[in-house]
Design a binder for these strands. Structure first.
Length: 481
RNA sequence: GGAGGUGUAGCUCAGUUGGCAGAGCAGCUGACUCUUAAUCAGCGGGUCCAGGGUUCGAGUCCCUGCACCUCUACCA
């Protein structure tokens, strides 16, 4: 099955024979550029009976009626019916057409008409072979269901499963609309290094590689953050980067080792500026791509109507675990959490127990968009403290459909404080601290709000799919050797 | 890392108690000038994921491995 990619079976033999026969008749099996009136979707949109058109596409079905043939071609924009009549094209051209197989790319000249069953159709006068397909397509009715084949041979999935193609069209449109939105707000899109001497800006195991010319170890970035902040120092007041991050960690339903991340930084604002921005951005995408603010799936409906709920971390904990939660002794709190079915590490303190409650019992239940604010400072070492309470930080986590979609910070711009936090984070690996970044901060980074948005996850939530592999064209899979 | 599930024709799937390997679509031959999952008649097509084992006999039972899926654990 999936490993028989170039298997030499009867289908391939038959198609090779058809190709040889066509060659014999003067048809070049692998053609060159072919000028068409337009995409099939454009031809359909400008349909006019008796209008001459030139079109191209892949043959997807053939209905042979004897002296006339109906077939469908598809160019990725649309499917369109063509009609080949022996009387109209002549016997030689007609007989040669019968040597075509489903999957072949052809170009056609003809005239538009509407059949008795009211199907817009091209009645062809001539056709050209553009590319012979030597292997068959998946079945027309059931499509390609085998999950592994759908990922490994995504092209077959895209050809035979219209839902999959539609989902990737939405992903493409989502990314385009995010860029439009941010560009219209005056943000500059920048590109910063994906290969870094130190993989900073997040805590994750990086992929390591070796740069031969410099004879040095390099890492694929786990986040662009530290470079984007250098640009804040350099005078870019509104920047974003929308591109790939790489993390050398496990694979599962919601994690792919390379994933698409949007990071946004804006000078002279703070976390509340980010809140306005993300609400505007996501509702813009929903409006323009989905045409509605009611998105997600039937099982996981999401209503993006504004305003979105805002709740402090503490409020959510108390709401779930009772007014007295923060007055309980560690033992009593543990007992209460365990009674809720949580499995707690004996070494955990109150902070960790409480956070386990948040992650396991609360976050997953936040179906509608919720800004969780005022997180404990210990959990978020790189954000600024709230002015009225240094034990909590001025951040939010936007949670939708039980998933963290966008964390935002009022960014740390004090180089002294930043250095001490990075040092304590690095522990004994002092060389892991990005000194050049700290130097940049000492030149003065304006106060700023910053935010990260996991694009794959956003697409999953808006489209209501639950596997990240379904929104990444070529997800990571193990080698089959 | 752990547990469970799946793997059969190009594709989608059946396969009973261990007893000749099945269907639909696709392919091939033939019929058919408005079909659209075209229809009708006929014909081919298998490394049953791989490797061992049990048995007179294994797609089916046992062991090992591989891939994929789900749950779980780890992962700021």
């Amino acid at each position: 099955m999936t490993d028989a990619i170039t298997s030499d079976n009867e289908y391939r033999q038959q198609r090779l024979a058809n190709m040889a026969a066509l060659k014999e008749l003067g048809y070049e099996p692998f053609g060159r550029a072919f000028e068409r009136t337009g995409r099939l979707s454009e031809i359909r949109a400008a349909f006019e009976e008796e209008k001459p058109v030139t079109a191209a596409g892949r043959l997807t079905t053939i209905r042979d009626m004897g002296k006339s043939i109906f077939a469908d071609i598809n160019d990725g924009s649309d499917r369109f019916q063509i009609y080949v009549q022996k009387k109209a094209v002549g016997e030689d051209v007609f007989d040669a057409f019968k040597l075509l197989d489903i999957g072949d790319h052809i170009g056609v000249d003809g005239e538009l008409f509407i059949t008795r069953t009211e199907e817009p159709t091209i009645k062809i006068t001539s056709w050209t072979l553009l590319s012979k397909a030597l292997l068959p397509l998946p079945e027309k009715w059931h499509g390609l269901k085998d999950v592994e084949s759908r990922y490994r041979q995504r092209y077959l999935d895209l050809i035979s499963n219209p839902d999959s193609r539609a989902l990737f069209n939405r992903r493409i449109a989502t990314i385009r609309e995010i860029r439009n939105y941010l560009s219209n707000k005056g943000f500059y899109e920048v590109e910063t290094p994906m290969m870094q001497q130190q993989a900073g800006g997040a805590a994750a195991r990086p992929f390591a590689t070796h740069y031969t010319a410099l004879d040095s170890e390099m890492y694929l970035r786990i986040a662009p953050e530290l470079y984007l902040k250098r640009l804040l120092v350099g005078g870019f007041d509104k920047v974003f980067e929308l591109n790939r991050n790489f993390r050398n960690e496990g694979l599962d339903r919601t994690h792919n080792p390379e994933f698409t991340m949007l990071e946004i930084y804006e000078a002279y604002t703070d976390v509340s500026g980010m809140r306005e921005l993300i609400q505007g951005m996501i509702t813009h995408v929903a409006d323009t791509v989905y045409g509605t603010l009611k998105v997600g799936s039937e099982a996981q409906p999401v209503d993006l109507s504004l305003p979105w709920r805002e709740a402090t971390y503490r409020e959510l904990i108390v709401e779930r675990m009772g007014d007295d939660w923060y007055d309980l002794s560690l033992d009593d709190a543990r007992a209460k959490a365990e009674a809720e079915g949580l499995d707690l590490d004996p070494a955990w303190d109150m902070l960790m127990v409480t956070h386990e409650v948040y992650e396991k019992l609360i976050e997953k239940t936040l179906q509608q968009p919720t800004f969780v604010t005022r997180l404990p400072a210990q959990l978020v070492p790189l954000a600024k403290a709230c002015p009225d309470d240094p034990s909590v930080v001025d951040v939010f986590e936007l949670v939708i459909a039980g998933q963290e979609v966008a964390p935002a910070y009022t960014e740390m711009n004090d180089p002294i404080e930043q250095r001490s936090r990075l040092n304590s984070q690095a522990g004994e690996d002092a060389e892991k601290v990005d000194e050049e970044f700290l130097t940049a901060l000492e030149h003065g980074m304006p106060p700023a709000g910053g935010m990260g948005v996991g694009i794959d996850r956003l697409v999953m939530i808006l489209s209501g799919v639950d596997a990240i592999r379904d929104v990444i064209l070529f997800p990571q899979l193990k080698s089959r050797e």
